[in-house]
Design a protein around this nucleic acid. Structure first.
Lengths: 259, 259
DNA sequence: TTCGCGCATTTACATAGGTTATCCTTGATA
DNA sequence: TATCAAGGATAACCTATGTAAATGCGCGAA
């Protein structure tokens, strides 16, 4: 299974961490070892069920997933999207407070990390431990952004803002063009993410299209953002928010050593 | 400054961590050492400014604070409340991605932890490092809950749900009676937290009062929840969500060793 | 004592967004 | 080829929540 051709499944994680943290040879090898055995999960399958304690964390190799909660009246709120290169479940693996579920939106490939393994690695490799901390901080920033979106923006801004964030995050892992990407989300999922009704998401998408902000082909699920500048301006999207979250153009030294 | 009378400023933190993690004598002493020099911050003062990099974390000894963001149009969204016993700023202290600000709502007392100190402690004391991880996980759960509140609940549910969460969190640090606590929040702050207008918060509070769900004396700022059961039911509040976040009644062994 | 300011309260009115229902397209399945 | 289900699009109507404006109350400053 292992290969040394220079492109293997560990690359995405190494690249992501390296944008902020200098990993030693040895640490990179650890990551490679961890990503040797992968499992696939089908679209629509739950990986972590609410209340079911999982004792593993997962590295998401490819595909999209959501973290969500169900509310008593049957509604669903999507907390965040998990994209290639993201890690999830380590919180739950340490404490039994997984109160949200994770579900694959597309077929996905993940690498499973047993809890003991994580603890072991954190003990032995400072930078990997730091990388984990960094991933958590990143996640926190994304959640905070989602709170602002829901609390202080209208439907148009929410949608535009989310689409920009996704573009940005996908670009960081090389899964998007300069203004275009594959968006495997139904309007229902957008609604459950943005706290809107399906109908209103539809209305709002139409408005975005009419305003020449986006093009979205429902067949191919290809989204193109026609005017990033205007859309960012219109939706209050702050480029710098995600730049901090691991822009590959920053040198690790600069990032770590600052202050 | 140190005292051994059995009640000192470290107690609140030790008690909080101990509900989930067994701290050694030595580790408790470290916490005590950390909480020896405190600083006070006045009501309305910012502790961490957006974009200003702070290289310290803080332990909140007493008083209330908010974590918030401002949106381009001048609005403010409160991300979360910081209550006695909470830790904040360690994320920002490690990476320069403090994109939200922290402000004291009441006069507060905090203990400052320089970044190096944190790193040093995490290296040397496994359980303290674990405690920190746990605090982060807790915070994450609270943010997720806030997202659900904003995304999938109406004004009445949002308010009731938040008031229950605050009761619950305050009880964990012994700052609330069985159904009553000091709530130093103006309606404007509630509005900025819940993504509502001030007027609507006012309307909704009235409704809660009329329904005999709460009593709130604007003079003393004393809030009493008259019927926890009914309010939890009505607002979809899940008792278990915060029970997991450090209920002192759980034995640490049970919590840690499970699985 | 009075002024002024922050905060709570209320009313009248405006609108963003929810609900319900129908129809269309497409693609999988029999 | 017919059927069915999922997702998208639209229209008519309804309501929760926002906006604007005015009023009152308490409290600290002069």
């Amino acid at each position: 299974m292992a290969d040394n051709t220079g492109s293997n499944s560990a690359d995405i994680f190494i690249a992501k961490f390296s944008s902020y943290i200098d990993l030693s040879e040895q640490e990179q090898e650890v990551i490679e070892a961890l990503t040797q055995n992968s499992m696939t999960v089908d679209e629509g399958q739950d990986i972590i069920l609410e209340s079911e304690k999982s004792s593993s964390a997962y590295l998401l190799q490819s595909g999209w997933a959501i973290r969500y909660k169900v509310v008593p009246d049957g509604g669903r709120q999507i907390i965040s999207f998990l994209l290639p290169g993201d890690i999830f479940g380590f919180r739950e693996s340490l404490f039994d407070l997984s109160d949200d579920s994770v579900q694959a939106l597309t077929p996905i490939i993940v690498h499973r990390l047993p809890a003991e393994k994580i603890a072991e690695i954190c003990d032995s490799f400072t930078n990997l431990s730091l990388a984990l901390t960094w991933a958590r901080a990143r996640e926190h920033a994304i959640l905070a952004e989602q709170i602002v979106r829901l609390g202080r923006r209208n439907a148009y801004e929410r949608l535009g803002h989310l689409l920009l964030e996704l573009l940005h995050r996908l670009q960081l892992v090389d899964k998007a063009g300069s203004s275009e990407y594959y968006l495997p989300l139904t309007q229902e999922i957008l609604a459950d993410t943005l706290g809107l009704s399906i109908v209103h998401v539809n209305r709002t998408l139409r408005k975005l299209r009419n305003d020449k902000m986006i093009e979205l082909d429902p067949k191919t699920r290809r989204l193109r953002i026609l005017n990033k500048e205007a859309l960012s301006e219109r939706t209050g999207y702050d480029q710098s928010f995600l730049d901090q979250l691991g822009d590959p153009s920053r040198s690790p030294q600069e990032a770590i050593g600052s202050d």
